[in-house]
């Protein structure tokens, strides 16, 4: 093991935190989607790290990570489809301009 487990975990934590920051703060919807991709990646890193260091069946983590990648791709696809549909109607991709459900 090249790097001790806590370090990788810290790393993925930081990546996740940055992803959350982006999700909360970016005005552009696509920016939010990008940040979500970051978060998913951080989770993947966690999965791989744990499967490598603590479990007896490392395939479990890696298979899981594969599924996560697939899911992430799907979510990106559907999310971008929605963004396109939204852009067509509202002509904007900025979240703070899309507040029809405001009180």
């Amino acid at each position: 093991m090249i790097v001790p487990l806590p370090h990788i975990l810290i790393f993925s934590l930081l990546l996740f935190a940055i992803g959350i920051y982006g999700a909360l703060v970016r005005r552009n919807i696509i920016g939010i989607l990008i940040s979500i991709e970051l978060m998913l990646n951080a989770a993947n890193i966690n999965l791989i790290a744990f499967s490598k260091t603590t479990s007896l069946a490392p395939e479990t983590g890696q298979i899981f990570a594969l599924f996560v990648i697939a899911i992430a791709a799907m979510s990106a696809a559907v999310g971008l489809a929605i963004v396109l549909a939204l852009f067509r109607v509202r002509k904007t991709v900025y979240t703070d301009e899309v507040n029809l459900l405001k009180w």
Binding site: E37, N44, S51, G61, Q62, A65, L66, A72, A73, L80
Partner: peptide, 20 residues
């Protein structure tokens, strides 16, 4: 986790990034 790394590059960087 070499297979996952390969898949990561192929799917994520290849397809998802293109999509984005």
């Amino acid at each position: 986790a070499d297979f996952v790394a390969a898949i990561q590059i192929l799917v994520y960087v290849g397809a998802v990034m293109t999509l984005i």
